[in-house]
């Protein structure tokens, strides 16, 4: 995680109404990092997929919030979601879950789910040909 430039944290209600706001924010941050329009579109799609799964899974807890952390590096961009272990194990199940997983892993350079108690979903996109850390 060396070389981090800026960190932006969003905390949102678990409501579908705000996913477009996440897309808009992700678009602005990715643009500032220097990605081209097509890559920004890919990043928006991938981030939305995780938001969708969090909201769908917790649809009875719409008064709860979830947190998205954007980490900006000189040559890359990372997005982190903190979710419960139970959610991480179930969010990519079923037909739509499988579509989401395929979409995220194809569009992003990095896609990991790490669990230590709760889980962190990390997605990363490199700028140009710079390798993953």
């Amino acid at each position: 995680m060396n070389g981090i430039v800026d960190e932006i944290i969003m905390q949102l209600p678990q409501k579908a109404d705000y996913v477009s706001l996440v897309r808009l924010t992700a678009s602005g941050i990715a643009s500032r990092t220097g990605f081209d329009i097509d890559t920004i579109e890919d990043i928006k799609v991938a981030i939305s997929e995780v938001c969708n799964k969090i909201i769908s899974y917790n649809h009875e807890q719409c008064n709860e919030h979830y947190k998205i952390t954007f980490k900006l590096f000189p040559n890359k961009f990372k997005v982190l979601f903190n979710v419960t272990n139970h959610l991480a194990r179930n969010m990519f199940e079923g037909e739509e879950g499988n579509f989401a997983k395929l979409i995220i892993s194809s569009l992003m350079d990095e896609f990991t789910v790490r669990c230590d108690g709760d889980c962190t979903i990390t997605m990363g996109k490199n700028l140009g040909d710079y390798p993953n850390e």
Binding site: V45, S48, E49, N52, S56, E95, E96, G97, F99, A100, I103
Partner: peptide, 8 residues
């Protein structure tokens, strides 16, 4: 724009 929910 369409996501996995729409594709489903």
């Amino acid at each position: 724009y369409i996501d996995s929910t729409g594709l489903g």
